[in-house]
């Protein structure tokens, strides 16, 4: 099964580039990525630019409208994601818990719908 791990954190809670904490933080992600790849569960994964760079797109009556910023204002914002290939939810939870931001923010684990299989 494929799972998406959506990484949420409070903006500004992750170490800034140039701060003494930045190096260890990136090293932790590096180590996690290596582990995911070594175990053969990593399908994809990226960090996203800050939510202030987001554009929300809606189409109503054929008209495309855009809004500056994310649609819903919430304290924790989506900052990145992974896609894992795992046997079951227990395995997916185990890998999600290895994402460094899980220790300060939150990681939502969602199964990816497999539309080619039975509904």
């Amino acid at each position: 099964m494929r799972y998406m791990a959506l990484i949420y954190s409070v903006p500004g809670s992750s170490p800034e580039y140039g701060s003494p904490e930045f190096g260890p933080f990136m090293a932790a992600y590096q180590a996690a990525n290596e582990r995911f790849a070594r175990d053969g569960v990593l399908v994809a994964g990226d960090a996203l630019e800050a939510s202030s760079t987001a554009t929300t797109v809606t189409v109503r009556d054929g008209r495309t409208e855009t809004l500056d910023g994310p649609f819903a204002e919430s304290k924790e914002q989506l900052g990145g994601y992974y896609i894992f290939e795992c046997a079951n939810l227990d395995e997916a939870i185990r890998y999600a818990a290895m994402i460094p931001t899980a220790a300060s923010g939150a990681v939502e684990v969602r199964p990816i719908r497999n539309l080619s299989a039975r509904p």
Partner: peptide, 14 residues
């Protein structure tokens, strides 16, 4: 079914 919660007894670590 959809989230893949395994029908299994957990391993020793869990």
């Amino acid at each position: 079914a959809k989230a893949g919660i395994p029908y299994a007894t957990p391993g020793p670590e869990d």
